[in-house]
Simulated assay, not measured.
Amino acid sequence: MNYAKEARDLDFAYKVRHALNESAENLPVATLDRLASARAIALSRKKQEAPAVALAFRGILAGNTGLSFQGPTSWLGKFGVVLPLLVLVMGLFGIYEYEQQQRINDLAEIDVAVLADELPPDAYLDTGFSAFLNKEEE
């Protein structure tokens, strides 16, 4: 229902514009000049739009050939690229070493549990003993 009203309003606006355009052709030149000057005055009083704010970083897109500490060609710029990569590699290496140490600690705990148990280690290798443990769990 709202769509039909909008369509009627739009159709009415087109008809009014068409009628005004037809009648504007028949206006005297003095009236057209007065309308043009009134339009110019109205446009001069129009509020200026606020300028758009954009952040621009020097040397990122255009390239920086000057002597400065910014840009991909300076030693500081190269260090700024290499440092995060170095930190990433060191972090991954640290995570790998930590996981390996955790695995070694887990295996050591299992070894201590097996050696501290009353059963001999050969009992754990026996398939019949595994079946016996599985039956007891059920």
Rank of each mutant, 00 (worst) to 15 (best):
Q102I: 11
N105W: 02
L88F: 09
A40Q: 13
L67C: 05
E137T: 10
V114G: 01
A36Q: 06
E25I: 12
Q101W: 07
L32G: 01
R45E: 10
G66C: 06
F129E: 05
S44I: 01
L61T: 07
M90N: 05
V87F: 12
D106V: 08
I41L: 11
E25A: 15
R45I: 02
L76I: 15
D11E: 15
N2F: 07
G59T: 01
R58L: 11
L55R: 03
T127P: 08
H18K: 10
R103G: 04
A42V: 02
A123E: 10
A123G: 01
D117I: 00
I41R: 08
D33F: 01
F69W: 10
A50D: 04
R39T: 05
E118Y: 14
I104S: 11
V89P: 02
R103F: 04
E25T: 08
S37M: 11
M90S: 10
L76R: 11
V112R: 13
E97S: 12
E49D: 10
F69K: 15
E118S: 09
P51I: 01
I95S: 03
V16M: 09
Q101S: 11
N105T: 13
V82M: 11
S23E: 06
Y3C: 12
E118G: 14
E109A: 13
Q48V: 05
G128S: 11
S44P: 00
A7E: 05
D117H: 13
Y124M: 04
F93C: 09
P121W: 01
N21C: 15
A54W: 00
S44E: 08
E97D: 06
R39P: 01
P84G: 03
L32I: 08
K15G: 07
A54R: 12
V53C: 00
L107N: 13
A62G: 12
L20I: 08
K135M: 09
S74T: 03
Y14G: 15
Y96W: 15
D33W: 01
L55F: 03
L133A: 06
E109N: 12
L88A: 13
R8I: 14
A116L: 14
D126A: 04
Y124Q: 02
Q100A: 04
P28C: 09
M1F: 07
L10T: 13
A113W: 03
A30W: 03
D33S: 06
H18Q: 12
I110G: 01
I110Y: 02
L67Q: 11
R103V: 01
V112I: 08
N26F: 14
E109Q: 15
A116S: 15
L85E: 13
L61N: 12
A7K: 15
P84Q: 01
T73G: 04
E97L: 13
V112Y: 12
L88T: 14
G66V: 04
L35T: 00
Y96G: 09
R8F: 05
A24D: 11
A50K: 14
P51S: 00
S68D: 03
G94W: 03
K5N: 07
V81L: 13
A13Q: 06
F12V: 14
R39D: 10
F79K: 07
K47M: 02
L133E: 14
K5Q: 12
A13C: 03
P51A: 02
K135E: 08
N64G: 02
K135S: 14
R34S: 14
G71P: 00
N21T: 11
A116Y: 07
N105S: 14
E22N: 13
L43A: 09
F57A: 09
I60H: 03
V82G: 04
A42L: 10
V89L: 13
Q48K: 09
L88K: 07
L43Y: 06
